[in-house]
Design a protein around this nucleic acid. Structure first.
Lengths: 110, 110
DNA sequence: GCCGTGAATCGAAGGACGTCAAGATAGAAG
DNA sequence: CTTCTATCTTGACGTCCTTCGATTCACGGC
């Protein structure tokens, strides 16, 4: 009865239109190299937290662009943001990643 | 030593630029409701195979549009197509789905 | 060969997306 | 209150994506 069991896998039964729309929204958020790297940087971070000021310099992009990508990841439920003083810290949402993995995995035999 | 172990998970280490680009290409293919439903229909099909002539009527879209989406799924390595006579049959590539799931799963604890 | 059917390609139209510069907002420090 | 820094929002511009109609390609049957 783990989290990702809320939805059957892709390979279990044809997706209904509404499910497909919801999942597509999340996968679309992952469909950009910058966002993938942002998510990976945050998720792999020791301590689980990362400040925008640490993320921005890793890219050749303006800060508002990074902010925009972080917003999309947040709206997809893949990360959460929290303001502490002047800085905003982001952390990943492992359960969201787990759910997605469950949708993709043809048949979890564990 | 399973297939998805070729690449570390998102949460294991920050993605390199090239990895991110490759993964983004695949996730982008999943970032559309029509393609997700197509993939799900094919992957969940008993026998594993499905003809374009069976897929097209499930959508309110013109046949060339379905063909276009199938092409994107094929280019992402998620499905393969095979012509048999007049018809073209598609089947999913479970190893590709498995690899993606492995990338997403924070820490596969077996 | 010549037609008919299933599927892919081409070209165009409309909308969505990624990016930036400029401006707005939140909080800390004086 | 003012000022400074870090972050977000807005508006605009160019590009890519989805979709379609028309055409072309691949086969099988006649």
């Amino acid at each position: 009865m783990s989290i990702q069991d809320c939805c059957a896998g892709l390979s279990d039964a044809p997706l209904a239109e509404a499910e497909a729309a919801g999942l597509a929204h999340v996968f679309k958020a992952l469909g950009d190299p910058v966002r993938l790297r942002l998510l990976s940087m945050i998720a792999s971070r020791e301590g689980g937290e990362m400040c925008v000021c640490e993320l921005t310099p890793a890219f050749d992009l303006a800060q508002p662009t990074i902010s925009h990508h972080l917003k999309l990841l947040r709206e997809a439920g893949l990360i959460t943001g929290q303001r502490r003083g002047t800085w905003v810290y982001y952390r990943s949402v492992p359960s969201a990643l787990d759910r997605l993995a469950g949708v993709l995995r043809p048949a979890v035999t564990a």
